[in-house]
C-alpha cells in the first residue's frame, strides 16, 4: 500500500515536472569484495532441491555469471544428511529428495574454506482453490486481472509469495509477497493486475502460491525494496536481510508450491 502510494506520488510529480530528464552517467565506483551468493531452495515438488552458488562482481563489470564450483553442499532433513551433486558449474542438486511440509531443513555450504549455514522450516501447505480471469478498470486503462482464492490457516502467522507468469511476456518478474496480518483464518480473495497489453486469446496464465518461512519473507521484502524502481528515493538502501550465516548474500528457502493455470479467452 505504502509503496504504491509512493510510486504514484513519484509518477505524478514526474508528470507535473515535465522538464525532468534521465541521463546515463559515468560513476567511479569502488571495487567490491567478491562475496558468496547462495540461492537455495527445497519445495514439496519432487527433485526440487537446488542450490546455486556464485560471487558478487564489481558493479561496472559485465553481468556474466560468476559461479563457484567445487563447493561442499549438504542438506540435513530432520536428522538425515544428504550431499548435493554439482550438476553444472555453481549449480548443486539433489534429484531424489522431495520436501515435506513441517520438516526443518539445514543447508550447509563449504566454499573456499568458509562455512555458510541456514535453517528453514517448510510451512504447512495451502493450495489455490480457484483461479479465474477478469477485467478491471484501473485509472483509465482496462486491465486483465488474475483472481484467485485460498484458505488461510487461522491461529498461525502465514507468509506467502505469489508467482504470476503470463507466458514470460513480462521480462521482469515482480516480487509479490504477502502475509495474513489482515486476514488470519479467512478465505482470501486476491487479485493480480496485469499491465501487460500484449496478452491475447489462447495465452496461458500461470499462478503459483508459495507458503514461505518468516525469515524468507523478510528476505524477499528487503530484496523488493531495493529492486523497486524508486530505490533512488530510499534514504538508505541496504543489502537484503539474509537467513544465511557467515555473511553470504542470498537465501535458503523451504516452501510449498501450489500451481494453477488458466487460458485466456476472448
Amino acid at each position: 500500500m505504502r509503496n504504491s502510494i509512493n510510486k504514484i506520488l513519484f509518477i505524478v510529480s514526474g508528470i507535473i515536472l515535465l522538464s525532468s530528464c534521465e541521463q546515463v552517467i559515468e560513476l567511479d565506483l569502488r571495487d567490491s569484495d567478491a562475496r558468496i551468493v547462495v540461492e537455495g531452495s527445497i519445495t514439496d515438488e519432487p527433485g526440487s532441491c537446488r542450490v546455486k552458488i556464485s560471487r558478487v562482481v564489481n558493479y561496472d563489470a559485465a553481468n556474466t555469471p560468476n559461479p563457484v564450483s567445487g563447493a561442499n553442499v549438504t542438506l540435513i532433513d530432520n536428522g538425515t544428511s544428504y550431499i548435493l551433486e554439482e550438476a553444472a558449474p555453481g549449480l548443486y542438486e539433489l534429484p531424489l529428495l522431495t520436501g515435506v511440509p513441517g520438516h526443518t531443513y539445514q543447508l550447509s555450504v563449504l566454499a573456499n574454506g568458509n562455512i555458510y549455514n541456514a535453517t528453514c522450516k517448510m510451512p504447512e501447505k495451502i493450495s489455490i482453490d480457484t483461479l479465474y480471469l477478469d477485467e478491471e478498470v484501473f485509472f483509465v486503462d482496462t486491465n486483465l486481472t488474475a483472481n484467485f482464492e485460498f484458505q488461510d490457516i487461522s491461529g498461525i502467522r502465514n507468509f506467502y509469495r505469489y508467482i504470476y507468469d503470463d507466458n514470460e511476456k513480462n521480462a521482469r518478474r515482480n516480487i509479490l509477497i504477502d502475509d495474513d496480518t489482515f486476514y488470519d483464518g479467512q478465505l482470501v480473495e486476491q487479485l493480480i493486475v496485469s499491465f501487460n497489453d500484449q496478452i491475447e486469446a489462447g495465452d496461458t496464465i500461470r499462478l503459483e502460491l508459495w507458503c514461505i518461512d518468516e525469515a524468507v519473507h523478510l528476505y524477499y521484502k528487503t530484496l523488493a525494496s531495493i529492486i523497486d524502481g524508486s530505490s533512488g528515493q530510499l534514504a538508505a538502501p541496504a543489502n537484503p536481510t539474509s537467513n544465511l550465516s557467515g555473511g553470504a548474500m542470498g537465501y535458503f528457502s523451504a516452501h510449498t508450491v501450489s500451481k494453477r493455470t488458466v487460458i485466456v479467452t476472448e
Binding site: L27, L29, R30, D31, S32, D33, A34, R35, V37, E39, S54, R55, V56, V57, N58, Y59, A61, N63, P65, N66, R172, R173, L223, I226, I227, S231, P237, N239, P240, M249, G250
Partner: peptide, 15 residues
C-alpha cells in the same frame, strides 16, 4: 551506491 552486483532469480541485484 552499490559497489558490486549479483544475480538472484535471473535479476541483477545491487550489492
Amino acid at each position: 551506491f552499490p559497489s558490486g552486483k549479483y544475480e538472484i532469480e535471473g535479476q541483477t541485484i545491487n550489492y
